[in-house]
Design a binder for these strands. Sequence first.
DNA 1: AGTTTAAATAGGAATGTTCTTATTTGGGGG
DNA 2: CCCCCAAATAAGAACATTCCTATTTAAACT
Lengths: 146, 146
Amino acid sequence: MLDEIKAKLKEKGFRLTPQRQAIISLVINPGPKLTAAEIWGLLRPKHPDMSLDTVYRNLTLLTELGVLIPIAGAGKDGTRYEPVTHSRHHHHIVCLKCGEAACIDTCPINPQFLATVQNQGYQLLRHNLELFGLCARCKPEDRCYV
Amino acid sequence: MLDEIKAKLKEKGFRLTPQRQAIISLVINPGPKLTAAEIWGLLRPKHPDMSLDTVYRNLTLLTELGVLIPIAGAGKDGTRYEPVTHSRHHHHIVCLKCGEAACIDTCPINPQFLATVQNQGYQLLRHNLELFGLCARCKPEDRCYV
DNA sequence: AGTTTAAATAGGAATGTTCTTATTTGGGGG
DNA sequence: CCCCCAAATAAGAACATTCCTATTTAAACT
């Protein structure tokens, strides 16, 4: 996994700085999905001079490289990043009450539809589907968002 | 249109303040989709004391009422809001180069899929699909985001 | 018209994220 | 081994958005 990422970086002309390596090795772990601020906090002991912007910059890069998936709108504390663990393309559902994000392992978008859009002149690069609702634990709450 | 919105507000116990009325009558116009800051700027002559937070608060409310659709990630200057003109549920495609957002008038999501998610314990309230790519004008550019 | 009360507001502080700029550095080539 | 330069960085300013709190106000009910 890590070697794959290093190869991908080299191939595209990106460097492997100590900061970048630290961020990558933290973020490719399975386990809780982290925010930029959390990553920064965890790395501070070993990299006391690392700026928060560096974390953001690298998370964006890793997203563009297809290594991470950003999960926006989950919880009040910002975007969380999930490693792409060889798994196929998928999406997420976010609970509007507790902020918990869960994976949905199928993409419900008609592939034919994507082809139609391409035929209309667009070059599609990616898409993002977010489902919002209330999870089983929070469902009793009845605030209506529609 | 305006009367419909007023009725919906009254029905749900929301008030009709001068600021809210001004925001609504500006935002339901067809034409360029506006950002919160732009709306604030346009209303400042008549409402010099209106706070930007009021604009955001009302845009959020109108979104929850189904009057507006937020289009995030289009351009560098923040979320733009589009009035729901009686039209059916739809989505957008955003050009990653010029930021232009276009409407896609069909929802390519399998309704059966949504039912499956509900059966798994979630109460779905809304969903958001954003397509990202390069529009016909910007297509020659070949920066790869995947 | 006067009272009441929850909703809405202004103002400012706080938060998450991106941008700017000057400086440093990884890593390829002489 | 040293030079070079584009890539990456730190630091802090800037930006979009949300939160907090004290004050005002729409509108329902006398």
